[in-house]
Simulated scan of single mutants.
Amino acid sequence: MLLVSAAVTKAQTNSYKFKRDITNVNSAWHSMKLPNQLYKNANIDFKDLRIFGVNGKDTIEVPYLLKQRADKVTSKNITFKQINQSSNLSNYYYTFQSDTTNTINQINLAFKQDNFDWQVTLEGSNNNLEWFSILKNYRILSIKNNYTDYKFTKLSFPDSKFQYFRIALKSTVQPELLSAKISKTDTVKGTYEDVKYKTFQLKNDATNKETVIEIALENPIPLSYLKLNAQSDFDFYRSIKIEYVTDSFKTDKGIQYNYANLYLGTISSLEKPEYNFPNTITSRLKITIQNNDNKPLRLSKLDLKGNVYEIIARFDNPKYAYALYYGNEKAVTPSYEIEKFESKIPSNLTFVALSEEQKNPAYSIIIKKPIFENKAWLWVLMAVIIALLGWFSFKMLRN
């Protein structure tokens, strides 16, 4: 029976190349952070992550949830109606009223014009008589031509609670305001880790009129945030593309890389050069800035961050010895019932530690052997087949 139980245990874990022991399991629910070194050998979609517990002859599989600690952004539109529109020599005023006093922190403006550069002042009031300043000399911009289609018309400001809001646009022409969407946006910050890069290579390509930056990391790691230190003596707005490497291949000119798009947008002097994108595991990035006929920007460094991946697991018996297994290309995503009852998971979970990566001693590769390993058997089989065919042929001809 011991041999049979050992075989069963081995059969459950022998398709996983690597394991990490889980220590300090002392209650039913625990959480654990995936270490950065794990991403190199685990499947990129995490289908191969398994937790097994062993206690003598018994082996159990532990159900878990994989959580990504990213920012959670919620936005609620607030109903305001426009009650006034006026102007003086150089300012155009738009006043909005709500039935009740509301807290807002964002106004998205839409105009009929395609090309403009205006200064905005935003004020708030509770009686439409006494006004308090919220934003001053806030710049909004729209540029549309053969090279660029760029708009920056979103007013962002600290939470402000008023019944009336008034926008003043400083312009030499009559702005044609199409809409103003007023909202309250809340962001619950996720958990990020700084990512250090190994190399930073910058090239200003005069032929293609672009700047290309290639960043190499030490190992594959999750990335979801990039901040670029970009400077210029003048205002700028240029197209930017961020790509991540998907695979590589060797050529006579060295190793070449295949890339996929991670972010497409604009780098501008009006906005912070910070970019958020879905958490993506990669070991290399390429940033392309289209300069057109402009002088390249001064780019000195960048900051990288990635969201933390965390496992929440239910350990039914602390007496078992648990380990996290991975490294199985043929694994499929597990289906556990606890994902249907996530609301019942305790909020205060204690972290458990994962040991250093080790090769799974139970890992084995099943190789299908040919029926006849020795070629002499093939020759014997062929000779028998030829003899049988010859005998049947002779018999038919004789009849």
Results as ranks from 00 to 15, higher is better:
T282G: 02
N128Y: 00
I78Q: 14
I221A: 01
S355G: 05
N55T: 05
D159H: 06
N137F: 06
Q174I: 04
L304N: 07
N36I: 12
M382W: 08
D293I: 15
S283T: 10
T121W: 14
G124R: 00
E176W: 04
Y244C: 08
Q119V: 09
L381W: 07
R50E: 06
K76W: 11
I371A: 13
N399G: 10
A321Q: 13
R166P: 03
Y164G: 04
R166I: 01
N279F: 13
N317T: 02
R69W: 09
L349H: 04
F18R: 09
L228M: 09
N328A: 09
D159N: 11
D58R: 11
P273A: 08
Y325Q: 10
S183N: 04
Y336S: 06
F200S: 07
W29E: 10
A230P: 03
N292R: 15
D205F: 00
K33R: 08
P334C: 11
S364Y: 07
Y93D: 07
V188R: 12
I255R: 10
N146I: 12
L177P: 02
A387R: 10
D71P: 13
N77S: 14
N360Q: 00
L349K: 00
L285V: 06
S393R: 15
T9P: 07
R284Y: 06
I345D: 03
T191Q: 12
A383P: 08
L297C: 05
I51S: 01
F80E: 04
I240Y: 03
I242M: 05
L141C: 09
S300H: 10
